[in-house]
Protein backbone atom coordinates (compact mmCIF):
# COMPACT_ATOMS: atom_id res chain seq x y z
CA UNK A 1 0.00 0.00 0.00
CA UNK A 2 2.92 2.34 -0.60
CA UNK A 3 1.65 3.78 -3.84
CA UNK A 4 -0.78 6.67 -4.06
CA UNK A 5 -3.47 5.04 -6.15
CA UNK A 6 -3.60 1.30 -5.85
CA UNK A 7 -5.89 -1.36 -7.23
CA UNK A 8 -5.39 -4.81 -5.76
CA UNK A 9 -6.87 -7.84 -7.51
CA UNK A 10 -10.02 -6.06 -8.63
CA UNK A 11 -12.65 -8.40 -10.07
CA UNK A 12 -15.85 -7.09 -11.54
CA UNK A 13 -18.55 -9.00 -13.40
CA UNK A 14 -21.71 -7.39 -14.72
CA UNK A 15 -24.80 -9.55 -14.58
CA UNK A 16 -27.45 -7.76 -16.60
CA UNK A 17 -30.95 -9.19 -16.56
CA UNK A 18 -31.77 -11.51 -19.47
CA UNK A 19 -28.26 -11.24 -20.84
CA UNK A 20 -25.02 -13.05 -20.46
CA UNK A 21 -22.74 -12.01 -17.62
CA UNK A 22 -19.73 -9.97 -18.69
CA UNK A 23 -16.48 -9.99 -16.76
CA UNK A 24 -15.11 -6.48 -17.18
CA UNK A 25 -12.11 -6.63 -14.86
CA UNK A 26 -10.23 -9.70 -13.73
CA UNK A 27 -7.42 -9.63 -11.17
CA UNK A 28 -6.77 -6.03 -12.11
CA UNK A 29 -3.78 -4.38 -10.42
CA UNK A 30 -2.41 -0.90 -10.71
CA UNK A 31 0.03 1.31 -8.77
CA UNK A 32 0.34 5.02 -9.44
CA UNK A 33 2.52 7.58 -7.71
CA UNK A 34 1.27 10.96 -6.61
CA UNK A 35 1.44 13.78 -9.16
CA UNK A 36 1.87 11.47 -12.12
CA UNK A 37 0.08 11.71 -15.42
CA UNK A 38 -0.86 8.14 -16.33
CA UNK A 39 -2.76 7.07 -19.44
CA UNK A 40 -4.56 3.80 -19.95
CA UNK A 41 -4.89 2.40 -23.45
CA UNK A 42 -6.54 -0.83 -24.44
CA UNK A 43 -8.94 -2.36 -26.93
CA UNK A 44 -12.61 -1.32 -26.91
CA UNK A 45 -14.57 -2.95 -24.13
CA UNK A 46 -11.47 -3.99 -22.17
CA UNK A 47 -12.77 -2.33 -19.01
CA UNK A 48 -10.80 0.94 -19.03
CA UNK A 49 -13.83 3.08 -18.42
CA UNK A 50 -15.19 0.57 -15.95
CA UNK A 51 -11.97 0.85 -13.97
CA UNK A 52 -12.32 4.65 -13.85
CA UNK A 53 -15.86 4.21 -12.53
CA UNK A 54 -14.59 1.83 -9.85
CA UNK A 55 -11.91 4.32 -8.88
CA UNK A 56 -14.49 7.12 -8.89
CA UNK A 57 -16.62 5.04 -6.53
CA UNK A 58 -19.65 4.72 -8.80
CA UNK A 59 -19.33 0.96 -9.25
CA UNK A 60 -18.23 -1.25 -6.35
CA UNK A 61 -15.96 -4.13 -7.40
CA UNK A 62 -17.01 -7.71 -6.59
CA UNK A 63 -13.69 -8.44 -4.94
CA UNK A 64 -10.44 -6.58 -4.48
CA UNK A 65 -9.40 -3.34 -2.86
CA UNK A 66 -9.27 0.04 -4.51
CA UNK A 67 -7.52 2.72 -2.52
CA UNK A 68 -6.39 6.32 -2.90
CA UNK A 69 -3.78 7.77 -0.55
CA UNK A 70 -4.20 4.79 1.78
CA UNK A 71 -7.99 5.17 2.06
CA UNK A 72 -10.18 2.44 0.63
CA UNK A 73 -12.67 3.68 -1.95
CA UNK A 74 -16.24 2.94 -0.82
CA UNK A 75 -18.07 5.57 -2.85
CA UNK A 76 -17.62 8.93 -4.54
CA UNK A 77 -15.45 11.38 -2.64
CA UNK A 78 -14.12 14.89 -2.94
CA UNK A 79 -10.56 13.60 -3.44
CA UNK A 80 -11.51 12.36 -6.92
CA UNK A 81 -13.26 14.03 -9.84
CA UNK A 82 -14.03 12.91 -13.36
CA UNK A 83 -14.04 14.61 -16.72
CA UNK A 84 -16.62 12.74 -18.78
CA UNK A 85 -16.36 11.73 -22.43
CA UNK A 86 -19.74 13.17 -23.38
CA UNK A 87 -19.09 16.23 -21.20
CA UNK A 88 -22.03 15.54 -18.86
CA UNK A 89 -22.90 19.20 -18.41
CA UNK A 90 -26.29 19.99 -16.93
CA UNK A 91 -27.97 21.64 -19.94
CA UNK A 92 -30.27 23.82 -17.82
CA UNK A 93 -27.34 25.37 -15.98
CA UNK A 94 -25.07 28.14 -17.17
CA UNK A 95 -21.31 27.63 -17.47
CA UNK A 96 -20.66 29.23 -14.08
CA UNK A 97 -23.43 27.25 -12.43
CA UNK A 98 -22.13 24.00 -13.95
CA UNK A 99 -18.62 24.64 -12.68
CA UNK A 100 -20.04 25.26 -9.21
CA UNK A 101 -21.70 21.83 -9.02
CA UNK A 102 -19.01 20.11 -6.95
CA UNK A 103 -18.63 22.91 -4.41
CA UNK A 104 -22.39 23.27 -4.20
CA UNK A 105 -22.70 19.61 -3.23
CA UNK A 106 -19.92 20.08 -0.69
CA UNK A 107 -22.07 22.76 0.92
CA UNK A 108 -19.82 25.73 0.11
CA UNK A 109 -21.70 29.04 0.38
CA UNK A 110 -22.64 30.89 -2.77
CA UNK A 111 -20.19 33.79 -2.45
CA UNK A 112 -16.93 31.86 -2.01
CA UNK A 113 -18.19 29.24 -4.45
CA UNK A 114 -18.64 31.81 -7.21
CA UNK A 115 -15.26 33.33 -6.48
CA UNK A 116 -13.37 30.01 -6.58
CA UNK A 117 -15.06 28.97 -9.79
CA UNK A 118 -14.29 32.27 -11.47
CA UNK A 119 -10.61 31.36 -11.13
CA UNK A 120 -11.09 27.98 -12.76
CA UNK A 121 -13.21 29.41 -15.54
CA UNK A 122 -10.31 31.76 -16.22
CA UNK A 123 -7.82 28.89 -16.07
CA UNK A 124 -9.63 26.99 -18.83
CA UNK A 125 -10.02 30.17 -20.87
CA UNK A 126 -13.77 30.65 -20.66
CA UNK A 127 -13.91 34.09 -19.06
CA UNK A 128 -16.82 35.95 -20.60
CA UNK A 129 -18.86 32.79 -21.14
CA UNK A 130 -20.02 32.40 -17.52
CA UNK A 131 -23.67 33.00 -18.35
CA UNK A 132 -23.82 30.91 -21.51
CA UNK A 133 -25.79 27.68 -21.59
CA UNK A 134 -24.03 24.49 -22.79
CA UNK A 135 -25.98 24.37 -26.07
CA UNK A 136 -24.41 27.71 -26.97
CA UNK A 137 -20.87 26.30 -26.71
CA UNK A 138 -18.69 24.29 -29.10
CA UNK A 139 -17.50 20.80 -28.16
CA UNK A 140 -14.08 22.04 -27.10
CA UNK A 141 -15.62 24.72 -24.91
CA UNK A 142 -17.98 22.21 -23.35
CA UNK A 143 -15.07 20.04 -22.34
CA UNK A 144 -13.28 23.09 -20.91
CA UNK A 145 -16.33 23.50 -18.69
CA UNK A 146 -16.11 19.81 -17.76
CA UNK A 147 -12.45 20.28 -16.86
CA UNK A 148 -13.10 23.44 -14.83
CA UNK A 149 -15.94 21.68 -13.00
CA UNK A 150 -13.70 18.76 -12.06
CA UNK A 151 -10.85 21.05 -10.96
CA UNK A 152 -13.13 23.40 -9.01
CA UNK A 153 -13.90 20.79 -6.37
CA UNK A 154 -10.12 20.61 -5.81
CA UNK A 155 -9.66 16.84 -6.11
CA UNK A 156 -6.30 15.14 -5.59
CA UNK A 157 -6.96 12.80 -8.48
CA UNK A 158 -8.35 13.83 -11.82
CA UNK A 159 -9.97 11.06 -13.84
CA UNK A 160 -10.48 11.59 -17.53
CA UNK A 161 -12.55 9.16 -19.57
CA UNK A 162 -11.67 9.70 -23.23
CA UNK A 163 -12.32 13.40 -22.67
CA UNK A 164 -11.30 14.52 -26.15
CA UNK A 165 -12.78 11.64 -28.16
CA UNK A 166 -15.84 13.66 -29.16
CA UNK A 167 -13.76 16.58 -30.46
CA UNK A 168 -12.39 17.18 -33.93
CA UNK A 169 -8.66 16.66 -34.52
CA UNK A 170 -7.53 20.29 -34.31
CA UNK A 171 -9.59 21.04 -31.23
CA UNK A 172 -8.16 17.89 -29.68
CA UNK A 173 -4.58 19.08 -30.27
CA UNK A 174 -5.38 22.40 -28.64
CA UNK A 175 -7.11 20.75 -25.70
CA UNK A 176 -4.14 18.41 -25.12
CA UNK A 177 -1.76 21.35 -24.91
CA UNK A 178 -4.19 23.17 -22.63
CA UNK A 179 -4.51 20.12 -20.42
CA UNK A 180 -0.72 19.90 -19.99
CA UNK A 181 -0.56 23.61 -19.11
CA UNK A 182 -3.37 23.20 -16.56
CA UNK A 183 -1.81 20.04 -15.15
CA UNK A 184 1.45 21.92 -14.53
CA UNK A 185 -0.54 24.66 -12.84
CA UNK A 186 -2.92 22.54 -10.77
CA UNK A 187 -0.54 19.68 -9.84
CA UNK A 188 -2.98 16.78 -9.78
CA UNK A 189 -2.53 13.08 -10.23
CA UNK A 190 -4.20 12.35 -13.56
CA UNK A 191 -5.59 9.09 -14.85
CA UNK A 192 -6.39 9.44 -18.51
CA UNK A 193 -8.24 6.82 -20.55
CA UNK A 194 -7.86 7.06 -24.31
CA UNK A 195 -7.99 5.12 -27.55
CA UNK A 196 -5.24 7.15 -29.08
CA UNK A 197 -1.68 5.98 -28.57
CA UNK A 198 -0.26 9.29 -29.74
CA UNK A 199 -2.36 11.22 -27.25
CA UNK A 200 -1.27 8.88 -24.45
CA UNK A 201 2.44 9.24 -25.27
CA UNK A 202 2.25 12.99 -25.68
CA UNK A 203 0.55 13.61 -22.34
CA UNK A 204 1.81 10.94 -19.95
CA UNK A 205 4.55 9.96 -17.56
CA UNK A 206 3.44 6.35 -17.85
CA UNK A 207 1.17 4.50 -20.26
CA UNK A 208 -0.64 1.39 -19.07
CA UNK A 209 -1.53 -1.06 -21.81
CA UNK A 210 -4.50 -3.26 -20.97
CA UNK A 211 -5.39 -6.68 -22.33
CA UNK A 212 -8.66 -7.39 -24.05
CA UNK A 213 -11.64 -8.25 -21.90
CA UNK A 214 -11.53 -9.27 -19.09
CA UNK A 215 -9.13 -6.39 -18.61
CA UNK A 216 -5.78 -6.82 -16.94
CA UNK A 217 -2.68 -4.65 -16.91
CA UNK A 218 -0.44 -5.98 -19.66
CA UNK A 219 2.45 -3.56 -19.59
CA UNK A 220 3.53 -0.32 -17.97
CA UNK A 221 5.47 1.83 -20.43
CA UNK A 222 7.42 4.74 -18.91
CA UNK A 223 7.47 7.80 -21.17
CA UNK A 224 10.93 9.32 -20.85
CA UNK A 225 10.27 12.39 -22.96
CA UNK A 226 11.31 15.66 -21.30
CA UNK A 227 8.78 18.19 -20.06
CA UNK A 228 7.44 20.65 -20.89
CA UNK A 229 6.29 18.89 -24.02
CA UNK A 230 5.66 20.74 -27.23
CA UNK A 231 4.04 19.89 -30.50
CA UNK A 232 7.34 19.25 -32.34
CA UNK A 233 8.14 16.43 -29.96
CA UNK A 234 5.49 14.41 -31.76
CA UNK A 235 7.77 13.99 -34.75
CA UNK A 236 10.90 13.14 -32.75
CA UNK A 237 12.39 9.63 -33.15
CA UNK A 238 11.93 8.79 -29.45
CA UNK A 239 8.24 9.70 -29.62
CA UNK A 240 7.73 7.33 -32.53
CA UNK A 241 9.71 4.56 -30.84
CA UNK A 242 7.40 4.81 -27.82
CA UNK A 243 4.34 4.83 -30.04
CA UNK A 244 5.58 1.70 -31.80
CA UNK A 245 6.38 -0.03 -28.52
CA UNK A 246 2.85 0.57 -27.24
CA UNK A 247 1.33 -0.41 -30.57
CA UNK A 248 3.22 -3.70 -30.53
CA UNK A 249 1.84 -4.47 -27.07
CA UNK A 250 -1.65 -3.47 -28.08
CA UNK A 251 -2.02 -5.08 -31.48
CA UNK A 252 -2.13 -8.64 -30.14
CA UNK A 253 -5.11 -7.67 -28.04
CA UNK A 254 -7.11 -6.32 -30.94
CA UNK A 255 -8.94 -9.48 -31.93
CA UNK A 256 -11.43 -9.43 -34.72
CA UNK A 257 -15.01 -9.30 -33.43
CA UNK A 258 -16.28 -9.64 -29.90
CA UNK A 259 -15.09 -6.18 -28.89
CA UNK A 260 -18.06 -4.17 -29.96
CA UNK A 261 -19.66 -4.22 -26.53
CA UNK A 262 -18.08 -1.40 -24.55
CA UNK A 263 -21.22 0.09 -23.11
CA UNK A 264 -20.83 -0.96 -19.50
CA UNK A 265 -19.30 2.16 -18.09
Amino acid sequence: MSSYISAENINLTFRPKNREAVTALSEFNIDIEQGQFVSIVGPSGCGKSTFLNVLLGLIPPNTGVMSVNGRTVTGPGTDRAMVFQEFGLLPWRTVAHNVELGLELQGVAKGPRRETCQGFIKMVGLTGFENHYPHELSGGMKQRVGLARALASDPDVLLMDEPFAALDAQTRDIMQAELLRIWHEAKKTVLFVTHQIEEAVYLSDHVIVMTKRPGRTKKLVPIDLPRPRDYEMRVSPRFNELKLEIWNELKDELSVGGDEDSGHA
Binding site: L58, R80, G88, L90, L101, G102, Q106
Partner: peptide, 16 residues
Amino acid sequence: KLLINVVRSFGANEWQ
Protein backbone atom coordinates in the same frame (compact mmCIF):
# COMPACT_ATOMS: atom_id res chain seq x y z
CA LYS B 1 -28.08 8.25 -16.85
CA LEU B 2 -24.86 10.08 -17.59
CA LEU B 3 -26.01 13.21 -15.77
CA ILE B 4 -27.12 11.11 -12.79
CA ASN B 5 -23.65 9.57 -12.68
CA VAL B 6 -22.08 13.01 -12.95
CA VAL B 7 -23.85 14.40 -9.90
CA ARG B 8 -23.36 11.13 -8.02
CA SER B 9 -19.63 11.36 -8.71
CA PHE B 10 -19.65 14.79 -7.07
CA GLY B 11 -21.24 13.27 -4.00
CA ALA B 12 -24.97 13.82 -4.52
CA ASN B 13 -27.38 11.71 -2.46
CA GLU B 14 -30.72 10.40 -3.81
CA TRP B 15 -32.57 13.59 -2.83
CA GLN B 16 -29.97 15.77 -4.53
